[in-house]
Amino acid sequence: MTEFRAAIRQALIDELTADPSVLVFGEDVAAAGGVFTVTKGLQEQFGSTRVFDTPISELAITGAAFGAAVTGSRPVIEIMFGDFMALAMDSLINQAAKWRWVSNGQTAVPLVVRTTVGAGARFGPVHCQIPGTWMQNIPGLKVVCPSNPADAYGMLRAAIRDDDPVVFMEHKRLYLDEGELTDAPVELGTARVVRRGGDVTIVSVMKGVGDALVAAEALATQDGIEAEVIDLRSFRPLDVATVVASVEATGRLLCVEEGARTGGWAAGLIGQVAADALGSLDDVAILCTPDHPVPFSPPLEDAALPGPEDIRAMVRERLGGA
């Protein structure tokens, strides 16, 4: 069994080993091995030319990653907390996301931005946001988000080998989860059905997938409701087809999002599902976080985050009437 964070480390080790053009840099990633120790030992193994600490300078880190990516390197940078992506976004949106297309295919932009996201660890309002939705509307970017160690390993390897810029989000409450790794390749932008069920479709990402599975087991054993659970795995590309296929069987869709309702991935996904398969929908619902920043105080933060009981309750109240 391998921890989620060790799975990420193993993906980095494997890709640093396989391809000498891979670079890993960011704030405190080298000597300290990262604030969540994800990159521990990489500098010792691969040297300070390929794995190095940077200034606290998100714009330069991301901009330099772009410049390196268009001149033969494959940089994997770390933006320590997803909230800091706000400082990196000009380079990511106006350079990295654009250049392959705007240059008419003269260059690829093979860079990966790893960033720690998500609430529940008492980090307060500006160390817990999930910036995937900020970037979901940007053609040219891929925005992916594993929910388990096997996907973390497979998706990060795929991200590093991808010729487009990929934002790779790591939920901080998954870092200690354990699972088996496989060499099976993961195609970025594909959702995965993680539990079969015919009564309702529950879609989530990252931490929410495990919560949905817990809720699904309770619904099955205590309420007689069989939920299909889909791990979206990617904000962009968005695998609408897998969700539509499920909804065509269940007729009911619940999206569980750690984030605000307006402008969230859930709202966008439901809109696309409706556009493609309105006739299959009997009901849709969104379980999300309240429309205010995530608070610090433990009871406040806990109340703001959807968990398995909230998912089960919403299915029962809203969708479980069958």
Partner: peptide, 18 residues
């Protein structure tokens, strides 16, 4: 680069490759 400063970042990154 159409946005001020983008050229500095791009060249800095190219410098990493070089």
């Amino acid at each position: 680069f159409g946005i001020i400063g983008g050229s500095m970042a791009a060249a800095t990154g190219a410098g990493l490759s070089f």
